[in-house]
Write a protein that binds this DNA or RNA. Structure first.
Lengths: 182, 182
DNA sequence: TAGTCTTTTCAGTTATTATTGAAAGGAATG
DNA sequence: CATTCCTTTCAATAATAACTGAAAAGACTA
C-alpha cells in the first residue's frame, strides 16, 4: 500500500531534517523524532514513533528523553490511555530560541573558561621564558584575547536577538539592514 | 622533558577547539589542525602537524586539504625548502565569516528546496485526499510555510551581518541592542 | 499486594566515521 | 631521464557513535 501526498510530504521533511541535524552535531534520529512530532502536530506515543521511524523502543526512549531535556518537546497524556504521549512546540521562533539557548549554555561558558585559563597560565609564566619565546607568548596571548573579544561580541548580539522575541524579529531585521547599508 | 608555558597554553587551546568542532559537526582533527595553525601563527609543514598532533601523513593531508577548500588556511612556501607549508587566516571575524558563508552555501539552499518541494507536492495532491486528511494537509502546509519564512528571515539577517564586515560589528551590535530595548 | 501495563536502562551488537600506512603519483633537481 | 623529495590516494583497520532487545524498574489498578 502506498503513502498518500500528506504522508510523503511528512516523510520527506522528516528525512531531510534528520540529515540537517546530523551535519550540526545532533544525532540523525533525535532530529527525525523532533521533525516527526513537529510536522505531525498531534501527540504521539512511543509506539507511534517506533513504528513510523522504524526504530527500537530503547532508541525511541533515549531520544525522547533528550528532546524533553532540551525543552523541544513535552510529555502529555491522553485521557483513558495509560501511555505517555509527546508533543512538540510548534512555534518556529521558539524552537530556534530553545536550541540556541541550550547550545550557548553548554558551549559558550566552557570555551571562555578555557581561553581565560590559557591566558592566565601564560601571564604567570611568560617572564620565565627566554627572550625569543617571550615574543611568541605575547603573540599567542593577543590571539587568545582576540578570540575572547570576538566570542563576547557574538554572545552579546545573540543575547539581544534571543531576548527580542518573535514579534520584534521583523524590526530587528530591518535595523540590521539599515545599519549595514550606511 | 616537559613543555613550557607557551606550549601548554597552545596545546590546551588546540584540544578544546577540537572538542568544540566535534560538537558542531566538524571532525575533531580538522578543528585541531586549524587551531594549531591559528594559535601558532607561523607556517607549518605537514611533518610539523603530524608530529605535534600525533597523526598520520594521510590524515594530515586529508584534513589540510579540507581546510584549504573551506578557505580557512592557505598553502605557502618557504624559500630554500621544497615542502609545502600552511598558514591560517588570523583574523577572528574573517574566520567566522568564512565558516558561516561556507555552511550557509552548503546547507541553506538544500533545506529550502526540500521545503518548497514538500509544499508543491502537497498543493497538487491535497484535493485528492478525503476531507479529514485535507485539513491535516493544510496544517502541514502551514508549518512548512512557517519554517520557510523563518529560515528566510534568519538568512536575511545573516546576510546583513556577514556583509557588514568587522569594522561595523560594534555599530551593529549597538543597533541590535537599541532595537530590542525599545 | 499481586497483576498488568509502560518506561527505562544498559550490555552487547551493528553501523558509521576517522585513521593509518604503504603504494602510486608529481614535481623539482642535477 | 633518473633520482630524490614530497604529496596524495585508498583499501584495510581502528575508533567512535548509535541502536537493539530483553531484563529491571516504575506506576497504576483492583
Amino acid at each position: 500500500m502506498s503513502a498518500d501526498a500528506l504522508e510523503r510530504a511528512e516523510q520527506t521533511f522528516v528525512r531531510r531534517w534528520g540529515e540537517m541535524g546530523a551535519t550540526w552535531g545532533i544525532s540523525r534520529t533525535m532530529a527525525e523524532v523532533h521533525a516527526l512530532l513537529f510536522i505531525t502536530g498531534d501527540p504521539l506515543c512511543t509506539d507511534d514513533i517506533m513504528q513510523m521511524l522504524q526504530i527500537s523502543r530503547g532508541n525511541a526512549s533515549m531520544n525522547l528523553r533528550q528532546l524533553v531535556n532540551w525543552g523541544l518537546i513535552r510529555r502529555t497524556h491522553l485521557r483513558g490511555d495509560r501511555k505517555e504521549y509527546f508533543i512538540s512546540d510548534l512555534d518556529t521562533w521558539q524552537m530556534f530560541e530553545t536550541i540556541t539557548r541550550e547550545r550557548r549554555r553548554r558551549e559558550v561558558g566552557p570555551i571562555i573558561d578555557t581561553l581565560k585559563q590559557c591566558r592566565s597560565d601564560l601571564a604567570g609564566d611568560t617572564p620565565k621564558l627566554e627572550k625569543e619565546r617571550q615574543q611568541k607568548a605575547v603573540d599567542c596571548d593577543k590571539k587568545l584575547q582576540d578570540m575572547l573579544d570576538f566570542i563576547n561580541t557574538l554572545d552579546v548580539m545573540l543575547d539581544a536577538v534571543l531576548s527580542s522575541g518573535s514579534e520584534q524579529i521583523g524590526m530587528l531585521s530591518a535595523a540590521i539592514s539599515n545599519t549595514v547599508k550606511r
